[in-house]
Amino acid sequence: MPADEISRETRIAAPPQRVWDVVTRAEHVSRWFGDAGAEIDLRPSGLMRVRWAEHGTAVCRIEKVSPIDLFSFRWGREVDAEPEPGNSTLVEFRLFPDGDGTRLVVTESGFSTLDDTPEGRARYRDGNVEGWAHEVGKLVAYIATVDA
Rank of each mutant, 00 (worst) to 15 (best):
K64C: 10
L139A: 03
G110S: 12
E82M: 13
E78M: 07
R74Y: 12
V19N: 02
L95R: 01
R8C: 08
D69S: 14
A148K: 04
T10D: 04
D115R: 08
L70G: 03
L114K: 02
A133C: 06
T145S: 14
D115H: 05
D69F: 10
D100Y: 09
W75I: 11
S30R: 10
D126S: 15
R11P: 00
E135P: 03
L47Y: 03
A36F: 13
R18L: 12
W132S: 05
P97H: 05
T117K: 09
G110P: 05
E27C: 07
I12E: 00
K138Q: 15
E130D: 09
G137M: 01
P44H: 07
D69T: 14
V136S: 02
E135M: 11
D126N: 12
V106L: 15
E63C: 06
E82S: 12
L90A: 05
I68R: 15
E78T: 06
D80A: 04
G46T: 06
E119C: 10
G37F: 05
R94M: 02
V19W: 01
E135S: 13
F93H: 14
G56W: 04
I6F: 02
V129K: 08
S72K: 02
L70Q: 08
A81K: 12
G56P: 08
R51S: 13
R125V: 01
A148R: 08
R8F: 06
M1A: 12
A53Y: 14
L90R: 04
E108G: 05
F73I: 11
S88D: 03
G131S: 08
L90E: 01
D4I: 01
L42D: 12
E54R: 14
A14D: 01
V105T: 10
R18P: 01
G120D: 01
F73Y: 15
A3S: 11
A133M: 08
R121D: 00
R31A: 15
I6A: 01
H55Y: 14
E130P: 01
M48N: 05
D98K: 03
A58E: 06
V22Y: 11
A36V: 13
A36P: 12
P67C: 06
D4H: 00
E39Q: 09
R74P: 01
E92T: 07
S66H: 11
S109D: 04
